[in-house]
Computed example of a mutant assay.
Amino acid sequence: MNGELNGNHVIQSMDYNTNDNNNRQTVRLRAATYLSPSIPIEYFEIILDYLKTRLGYIDTSLRYESNTRNIIQVFADNEIDIAWISGTSHIQLAQKGKAALLPVSSVHIHPDAADSAGYYCDVIIHESLGSRVKCFAELRGCKWVYNASQSLTGHYITMKELRHLGENSSFFGHKQESASDLQSIHMILNRQSDATIVDSNCLQIFLARNP
């Protein structure tokens, strides 16, 4: 299963100030991420450090937000200039006319998708199910955990696959919301749930840190 979304960066505005040290204009870039802890905060710090190194005339700050319910207000109040957000949050912002999608983004390659860049997610199951579950349709009746009901990965792509199978959410024996992809992974490992679907970048980073 995979769904494509071309980028998840949005930008609103920038403030320009004079740098007294070199008498040149400095861009103050106020950034925020709504994707942590599933994607480590260090990832976004690296991107901002790269921009600062390459451009040389920006000051950056990074704000960590876990509450997506306030995202429209944050942009409306001009509190941030650029943010990493979910596809669902971007749609909400776009509908309100509060932000625009950047024409550039980092590129992530899925290990099973050759050189096809896009937005990917992976279904993972507890090892105890490995002998009998070989495809999504065989997850009927399982304990399913997902990150959030408004998530592109956790909800909308899953529902799309269920409709493709002629099923609905009653396909699963039990459903539980975890609040993050990272927590969903831990719930599978701790046998609190049987299966989940998570952002591929989150999964690859987790596997790299926990070989």
Score class of each variant (00 low, 15 high):
residue 104 V to D: 02
residue 36 S to N: 10
residue 1 M to F: 14
residue 140 R to Y: 13
residue 86 S to E: 00
residue 156 Y to V: 10
residue 173 G to W: 09
residue 124 I to T: 06
residue 194 D to A: 05
residue 154 G to P: 14
residue 172 F to T: 04
residue 58 I to V: 15
residue 211 P to F: 15
residue 108 H to L: 13
residue 160 K to A: 13
residue 51 L to Q: 08
residue 110 H to Q: 14
residue 53 T to R: 12
residue 160 K to W: 09
residue 182 L to M: 13
residue 20 D to K: 11
residue 61 S to D: 02
residue 142 C to A: 08
residue 17 N to K: 11
residue 97 G to C: 05
residue 61 S to Q: 12
residue 211 P to M: 05
residue 194 D to E: 00
residue 65 E to K: 12
residue 131 S to I: 01
residue 74 V to Q: 04
residue 111 P to L: 05
residue 77 D to Q: 03
residue 153 T to A: 01
residue 45 E to K: 09
residue 69 R to C: 03
residue 11 I to P: 12
residue 87 G to D: 03
residue 169 S to I: 10
residue 51 L to G: 04
residue 184 S to P: 07
residue 137 A to Y: 07
residue 158 T to E: 01
residue 120 Y to F: 14
residue 1 M to N: 06
residue 126 H to P: 09
residue 48 L to V: 06
residue 81 D to T: 05
residue 28 R to W: 15
residue 64 Y to E: 09
residue 163 R to E: 08
residue 193 S to F: 14
residue 118 G to H: 11
residue 126 H to D: 06
residue 205 I to R: 11
residue 86 S to A: 10
residue 12 Q to M: 11
residue 121 C to T: 14
residue 83 A to K: 05
residue 97 G to H: 14
residue 15 D to L: 10
residue 52 K to L: 02
residue 71 I to F: 10
residue 173 G to E: 00
residue 36 S to P: 12
residue 178 S to Y: 12
residue 51 L to N: 02
residue 124 I to L: 13
residue 54 R to Y: 12
residue 31 A to P: 09
residue 121 C to A: 15
residue 13 S to N: 13
residue 2 N to P: 15
residue 171 F to W: 02
residue 100 A to V: 03
residue 191 R to C: 01
residue 135 C to V: 05
residue 64 Y to L: 06
residue 126 H to M: 01
residue 87 G to N: 03
residue 30 R to M: 03
residue 28 R to V: 15
residue 5 L to Q: 12
residue 121 C to E: 11
residue 20 D to Y: 06
residue 164 H to L: 02
residue 80 I to V: 15
residue 52 K to G: 06
residue 93 L to K: 01
residue 85 I to K: 01
residue 81 D to H: 15
residue 150 Q to Y: 14
residue 46 I to Y: 14
residue 86 S to F: 13
residue 106 S to D: 04
residue 211 P to S: 11
residue 82 I to D: 00
residue 54 R to C: 03
residue 125 I to T: 10
residue 114 A to T: 10
residue 118 G to M: 04
residue 22 N to D: 13
residue 151 S to G: 05
residue 13 S to I: 02
residue 17 N to P: 03
residue 196 T to N: 06
residue 46 I to F: 09
residue 144 W to Y: 15
residue 66 S to I: 15
residue 85 I to G: 00
residue 74 V to D: 06
residue 201 N to F: 13
residue 166 G to I: 04
residue 81 D to W: 11
residue 77 D to R: 07
residue 55 L to Y: 11
residue 45 E to G: 05
residue 116 S to P: 04
residue 152 L to S: 12
residue 57 Y to R: 13
residue 111 P to Q: 08
residue 159 M to C: 09
residue 135 C to F: 08
residue 104 V to S: 12
residue 80 I to M: 02
residue 143 K to F: 14
residue 174 H to T: 08
residue 35 L to H: 06
